[in-house]
């Protein structure tokens, strides 16, 4: 039996793309400290608002999804930096004290 790869976000993204959705994929490219998801972890986002996978423990997915919408519209990839969040609740970051870089690209 072939494994059901719950991490195979790219396959999900490709299926969405094939079904006519506009899709961006975000990938963790580098981590420092106690970030929850290793490099290579992915999240897919569609223009219509579907989401699969994760790039953190839920701390930065919202911000990444916002960035993904821009990349879907512009076609320009982005390399996002997320550091430690501080007391100010409106700042997006990682409460765990880790840091991550996330690359966002459009599936063309």
């Amino acid at each position: 039996m072939n494994p059901i790869d719950v991490d195979d976000v790219l396959a999900t993204a490709a299926a969405w793309r094939a079904a006519g959705e506009q899709v961006a994929v975000a990938t963790v490219t580098e981590t420092w400290g106690s970030s929850p998801r290793p490099a290579g972890s992915q999240m897919a986002v569609t223009k219509s608002g579907r989401m699969a996978g994760s790039v953190s423990g839920g701390c930065i997915e919202g911000a990444v999804a916002d960035a993904a919408m821009k990349t879907i519209d512009s076609g320009t990839p982005q390399l996002l930096d997320f550091g430690v969040s501080n007391e100010r609740a409106w700042e997006v970051g990682l409460a765990c004290g880790g840091k991550v870089k996330v690359f966002v690209e459009r599936l063309s």
């Binding site: 039996m1 072939n2 494994p3 059901i4 790869d5 719950v6 991490d7």
Partner: peptide, 9 residues
């Protein structure tokens, strides 16, 4: 258990 952990059985 094995399949979702990424194993081909």
């Amino acid at each position: 258990f094995a399949v979702p952990c990424g194993f081909s059985v």
